[in-house]
């Protein structure tokens, strides 16, 4: 065992979970597919681990008023097996197989990915491109946060201490809406070196990149260029996008890869 020891609690209700999360140095665990390696490497060392896997109410998918509400504890494997997601949210359907490996997607959850806000993760960028929402609940009750306001920095979100992600809301695809997704990784299942999601409705185009900054980012210059269908101008506009390098690729490489990904995703969206 490599993680420092901790107190483990598995609440049976949301109110019980929120009470536990109000305690000193408490961390929720959903699928744990990112948090556990972080704990084993001792990058995270919570004193109290609040296991959300007993909260059956937090898993499930419901459609209403043109939106899909997906419970935070819904696992990637369940999303892959959902006709509502496969048909209603094609961009998410395209991105799901790129998340790690099958035996990780059986545990990993959509809410966990949003709560962790890894800058190289697919789902926060999918939500950003779709203009989705994150529902959180804390001692003050539930509130809804727009995807544009969700990630605030490296592994930082608009979630306040003591609040828990309870659901993710995504608009169902409109007739004629087009989508593109592409990511470049060294091996399939690895975190991306650069990736992009495109959602285009008529001349309104949303472009969300991941793995090129401390958080998923929209690219306003590229969006404006793609609104007129000019992919060359969209790629050129990436010159103005702030891009951070990481261990595997510097900013210039990432900018190049972001352009390659954008061309491929746009080709998919317009094919």
């Amino acid at each position: 065992m490599k993680a420092p020891d901790f107190r483990y609690e598995r609440p049976a209700s949301l109110s019980e979970a929120l009470a536990l999360l109000a305690e000193e140095d408490a961390t929720p665990i959903a699928g744990g597919q990112s948090l556990m390696p972080m704990m084993n490497f001792r990058m995270a060392a919570p004193a109290l681990l609040v296991d959300l896997n007993g909260l059956a109410d937090l898993a499930g998918i419901t459609a209403a008023d043109g939106w899909l509400t997906i419970g935070a504890m819904t696992r990637y494997a369940a999303l892959e097996g959902s006709a509502q997601v496969m048909e209603g949210v094609p961009l998410m359907a395209r991105a799901l197989p790129h998340i790690a490996h099958p035996a990780i997607r059986t545990r990993g959850t959509l809410g966990g990915s949003l709560a962790l806000a890894d800058p190289a993760a697919e789902m926060p960028a999918v939500l950003l491109a779709l203009g989705g929402e994150v529902v959180v609940e804390g001692p003050g009750g539930p509130r809804t946060i727009a995807a544009d306001d969700w990630a605030t920095g490296l592994y930082e979100t608009a979630r306040a201490p003591g609040e828990l992600v309870t659901a993710i809301r995504v608009p169902l695809a409109a007739p004629g809406q087009r989508f593109g997704f592409h990511e470049l990784a060294r091996r399939h299942g690895d975190y991306a070196l650069a990736g992009v999601c495109i959602a285009a409705t008529g001349d309104a185009v949303r472009v969300a990149f991941f793995a090129i900054s401390d958080r998923p980012v929209r690219a306003p210059g590229a969006e404006a260029a793609l609104a007129t269908g000019d992919i060359d101008a969209a790629v050129a506009a990436l010159a103005d996008l702030p891009i951070d390098g990481d261990l595997h690729a510097g900013p210039d490489t990432k900018r190049h890869l972001a352009g390659v990904a954008l061309r491929r995703a746009w080709a998919e969206a317009t094919s």
């Binding site: 483990y8 744990g32 556990m36 035996a103």
Partner: peptide, 11 residues
Amino acid sequence: AVKACTMFAAE
């Protein structure tokens, strides 16, 4: 299928 190195026994 799960990776047993990335799940706690308590879970």
